Structure formats: structure tokens, C-alpha cells
Computed example of a mutant assay.
Amino acid sequence: MEGATTARPPAALVPASPALAHAAPPPLRPGNVSARMLLHMMTEQELGGLVVATHDELSAGLAMERGMISRAMPHLVAARLVTVVRRGRFQLHRMIAAFNDPRKQQRAVKALPRDMRLDVGDFEDEYERRFQFHLDEKARKAEARAKGNVAPINKPTRLKRVH
């Protein structure tokens, strides 16, 4: 068609890093919960990529249910874009984290082992493998709970008596 223009995604949906654009598996495509959550976390991060927010705070900031946040987080973790440090603390991958000096980001990215970079290897296959592992582990734990398989503590303790 003559004179037709190519539609461009809104600026908010364009990945902030070329590595992210190169390595966006289907669950992180713009428009879905994982992508929205990642972009929101990128706006809430401290320098270096630390995000201090509970699932409730993330859900309030995104105007969605907390359960949606809980279901989307494993996708970001499997994609290695987010690491759960502990409850209420998340670390963004160094390649997409904010730094106040480009040299600091370059040093942080350079310090990454090659297999941790987002622009090396087959990102999508690795994502699929890690997410499947998450699902398998979740199913295994659910099955153990359903069977009541809790490891019994039947060994006597070897504590010494204190007189």
C-alpha cells in the first residue's frame, strides 16, 4: 500500500534495553501481565536495580489483583529478568537495571558470567526449560502435600545434657 505507515508500539511498551528486545520470550511480549509488571518494576527500582515492594504494593501500582502478580513473577524469574532476594525485595537483571553512570552499568554487565547475559545463547529455550522446571517443582510439592508426605522426624537428637 502506497503511503501506509508502519504502526509503532507505544513508547511504554518498547523494551528499555536492546538485550530485552532481543530476548523477549512469548510470556514477556508487550501487553501481558509479565511485561507490564517488569516495566512497572523498572520505574520503581532503586539505582542498581533493587525493587523494594511487596506483591500487594505491586498489584496496587498496576491496578490488578495480587494473584495476577504471583502468577506473573515466575515468568520473570524464569526469564532471569528478576531475582527474588527475599519477601518484598526483587533484583532486576544488571542488563536492564538503572545506574546513574553508564560506566557503572558497563562494569556491572562486564562482571556477569557469560551464561548470565541476556544477549548470549538461546534465551527462549533456556526460559522454557527454567519455567518448566518451576512448574514441575510446583506440581511435585502439591503432590507431596496432597499425600501428606512430610518427612518424619524419627531420629533421636544427639544433644548433650547440660548440667
Rank of each mutant, 00 (worst) to 15 (best):
D136A: 06
D119I: 04
H163E: 03
F131P: 03
V77M: 12
T83W: 10
T157F: 04
R130S: 03
P10N: 04
S17M: 01
A7R: 08
T5H: 15
T54Q: 09
M68L: 14
R158N: 12
F99K: 09
P10G: 12
M68Q: 15
A98I: 05
Q91C: 02
A79D: 10
S34I: 00
V33I: 02
G61F: 03
P113T: 05
Q105E: 10
A21Q: 06
L50M: 13
D115C: 07
A142Q: 14
A16R: 14
A108K: 00
L135H: 10
M42H: 06
V14D: 01
R89F: 10
G3P: 00
N32L: 09
A19M: 05
R87T: 15
A16T: 12
R107H: 14
A142R: 10
V109Q: 00
N149M: 11
P10S: 12
G67W: 04
S70K: 13
A108P: 13
D125Q: 08
L58H: 00
V33A: 10
A72K: 06
R86Y: 11
R145S: 11
M37L: 15
P27N: 02
A78Q: 00
Q45H: 04
H75G: 06
D136I: 00
P9Y: 06
A12K: 11
V109S: 04
E128W: 08
P102R: 01
A78H: 08
L92T: 09
A11Q: 02
A98K: 04
L39Q: 08
A35F: 13
V109A: 11
I153A: 07
D122T: 04
L28N: 08
H93K: 01
T83A: 10
H93W: 07
V51Y: 05
S59A: 15
A35K: 05
E143Y: 03
F133D: 00
S70E: 13
A12C: 02
R107P: 04
R80K: 10
L13D: 12
R94P: 09
Q132C: 02
V150K: 09
R140G: 04
A35Y: 09
R158I: 05
R89N: 01
E65L: 01
R158F: 07
T157H: 11
I96V: 13
A4I: 02
G31Y: 03
L13H: 12
A79R: 13
P102C: 12
Q132N: 13
V162P: 08
A144W: 01
G88C: 08
R114P: 04
R129T: 11
R158P: 02
R145F: 10
E46P: 01
E2G: 06
N149S: 04
H75W: 05
A19Q: 14
S34K: 01
V14R: 06
